[in-house]
Design a protein around this nucleic acid. Structure first.
Lengths: 246, 246
DNA sequence: CGCTTGTTTGATGATTTTCAAGCGCAGTGG
DNA sequence: CCACTGCGCTTGAAAATCATCAAACAAGCG
């Protein structure tokens, strides 16, 4: 068993969650793995399944990944997404969810053991990992809060702003979002159906909150009202959407 | 060991006790803290708030605790519960959610630093901690899967079975459950309203799934049909509730 | 082209929320 | 002792939201 100190205790449980692992961690990752093994996967390829032994950690170079669990009758709950720059595969001894590519994906792969050793030797790296866990957990609990209490419009606004914020952190345009996922993944992530997701996109468009040329390309036009929705602040929402005012 | 086969993982949608650990860990806790500082809180007392610095870990001796986050307009998302025997306060540098007592509570308190040192010195203890965090994460993901995809009846059935299972693990009656939380906490946990929760309890009673004398005391009468509901298996549910059959 | 896949839109229906009222119980004070 | 009050729970009726069923559209591809 891997030697454990308290700091690592938390790290070792890091979980790859959506919108996690920004630049700094990826940089630290690269420091420790100058020549990482690379691997490519096609679109809609199952990288690992729920319950599989977790043996490597991957940095996404390009493409994006969807995490999910299945319900007995075939329904699916999407737990999160990982985009380029994200480190995935942190977590428990075995994977707690399945991971599937949403596009062709290029990964850099590092065995778990090497990562653990790196964390032991490099305090800063260890700290980044630790911070990452916190962020992931916040995301998880935020997600619970979100889907349990927000309306369809609020949930979608929430997601769009998350993606926008992510773009901003990476130095990309905060207003123009390329959605790597299909409507079905958004629906399964937000706990809705594809029809409701589609209708809500249309509503946002008609209300002037977003532009939507290609279904996968969203341009945010009124981030303020979107933010009011995403906050789940019903009081402030009164005037934000005509649908609600009328 | 962590349950690792996919079937188990789906069913291990344990109640979301954010970093609230059960028996073995509690025992290890006691090993390292023979004379713990004790503290009492009244009912509906805020033990800590989201964002507070996390400086101690607590073992619940009696009473129970509710974890939650607030939305801007006052709505609340309950993330989980902790019952007697649970260890609470593990996690990140600062608390990711608030904790409030649901009854008068007696706690044993240990500073985080001591716990960290204990984990360093005692590999088994460290392992228990690790396993526990994994369990919490599984629970969180299960909870996400649950509230995003299940109906009101399915969610409530799920919760009742979790509580029943918890009773069983502690050697108590699996059929008779004393609910430590009010309807409002159940509602905020399941992402429903108190009225819907109440109606669903009544439905279960009329269907003969449970008995309900005192609103806080549930007697499970037909665990099979309850389990079918909790699984979220719409195919198998067809005959399980008259409401659905009619 | 014809096929498949993904998205959008419409009509309808089911579930859940909202608003409203009533019940039971415990605590309080006349 | 008994109204009175507050709180939590239940129930009902109406309204809103979302899901389901169904059809049409657009894009990509053999």
């Amino acid at each position: 068993m891997i030697p454990v100190n308290p700091a690592q205790l938390v790290q070792a449980k890091a979980i790859s969650f959506p919108f996690a692992a920004g630049g700094k961690l990826a940089n630290a990752f690269r420091r420790h793995l100058p020549r990482a093994a690379a691997q490519k996967f096609g679109c809609r390829h199952l990288i690992w399944s729920e319950g599989d032994k977790r043996d490597c950690v991957c940095l996404i170079q390009s493409g994006s990944v969807c995490f999910f669990r299945m319900l007995p009758d075939g329904r699916r709950a999407v737990i999160g997404f990982a985009l380029p720059g994200d480190l995935i595969g942190l977590g428990a001894e075995s994977h707690l969810f399945s991971a599937e590519t949403m596009q062709p994906v290029r990964l850099e792969i590092m065995p778990v053991a090497i990562l653990d050793r790196a964390a032991q030797e490099d305090a800063e790296f260890a700290y980044e990992l630790r911070e990452e866990v916190t962020r992931s957990l916040m995301a998880a609990y935020g997600h619970i809060a979100s889907i349990s209490k927000l309306s369809a419009a609020e949930r979608l606004a929430h997601l769009l702003l998350e993606l926008s914020e992510r773009n901003r952190m990476k130095g990309l345009s905060a207003a123009s979002i390329v959605l790597p996922m299909r409507r079905i993944e958004i629906a399964d992530y937000l706990g809705l159906t594809i029809e409701t997701v589609s209708r809500t996109f249309s509503l946002f468009r008609h209300e002037g909150l977003i532009d939507l040329g290609d279904p996968a390309i969203v341009t945010i036009k009124d981030i303020k009202r979107l933010a009011i929705l995403a906050r789940g602040d019903r009081d402030a929402e009164k005037g934000a959407l005509c649908q609600f005012a009328a």
